[in-house]
């Protein structure tokens, strides 16, 4: 039910955006790296910064939503992040590392955001956020400007929410399955040789407690080489819909 609701909402948001801001909508819907020349000529410098930040957010949008009406994904919803204490969302399961940092008083100021984006693990050593960091300081400043300035309903979902229903989404068949968590537990034996059951990240990302659909999508992205990685492509080559659904069910439950 929730999925259908979000999809409908997303579709209407996309539509609203298409009407209001054609350039931006096109950009988020297609390749994010494409130069936004249409914006360059017409907008003032600040807007330029903002728009560059928007395209940079493509690096984050795989895991983060940026609209108050949308659910958490692999990472917490980042709407209104400026000035928010770390680990503040009730309905997101943060890592122990993030919760500890919050207890030590970490608040998402512009500066804290900048440092976190530059190198997440230098700010929160054991964070479960699997992002390598952004080296370019100007790019980070642009991104933070966008993150902190975005208004409700402005940011269109980047996930492939096709207008003709969820059927065309990658991994849709597996998402429609119940997922046998006991089978998933057995299958997880292969995964936990590399991905720690505790979710700890010591060189290989934690995969515990992800929302089912995001988990399924990630595995299909490896399977179809949308995300390319030798190990994960091999791992997923032997997993069918049933197996992937089972694993998603198990790992989601493991995070509870």
């Amino acid at each position: 039910m929730r999925v259908a609701h979000v999809a409908a909402l997303a579709a209407s948001l996309t539509l609203a955006l298409l009407v209001a801001m054609p350039a931006a909508a096109e950009e988020t819907a297609s390749a994010p790296e494409a130069p936004d020349s249409s914006v360059d000529d017409t907008t003032a410098f600040e807007n330029d910064t903002y728009e560059r930040g928007r395209s940079l957010f493509a690096q984050c949008s795989r895991c983060h939503e940026l609209d108050p009406l949308r659910a958490n994904r692999i990472g917490p919803n980042l709407f209104s992040i400026l000035g928010r204490p770390a680990a503040a969302l009730q309905d997101f399961r943060y890592s122990q590392g993030m919760r500890a940092a919050a207890q030590d008083g970490l608040v998402w100021s512009r500066d804290a955001l900048d440092r976190f984006i530059a190198d997440p693990r230098s700010v929160v050593r054991r964070t479960s956020m699997n992002y390598r960091g952004m080296e370019d300081a100007t790019a980070r400043a642009d991104l933070v400007t966008f993150l902190t300035g975005v208004t409700p309903g402005e940011y269109a979902p980047q996930t492939p929410v096709a207008t003709d229903g969820a059927a065309t989404e990658i991994g849709a068949a597996a998402m429609a399955l119940e997922g046998d968590a006991a089978y998933g537990e057995y299958l997880s034996g292969e995964c936990v040789t590399c991905h720690q059951e505790t979710g700890a990240n010591e060189g290989i990302p934690g995969i515990v407690g992800w929302p089912r659909d995001a988990f399924i999508r990630a595995l299909f992205e490896y399977k179809t080489n949308v995300r390319s990685h030798q190990v994960m492509q091999l791992v997923t080559s032997n997993l069918g819909d049933e197996e992937i659904a089972a694993l998603a069910a198990y790992f989601e439950q493991l995070g509870e």
Binding site: T193, C194, E197, N201, E202, G203, I204
Partner: peptide
């Protein structure tokens, strides 16, 4: 190489 470090931590924990 970094993955191998992750794997070592993973398998010994396992």
């Amino acid at each position: 190489y970094e993955e191998s470090i992750g794997w070592y931590a993973g398998i010994t924990t396992d």
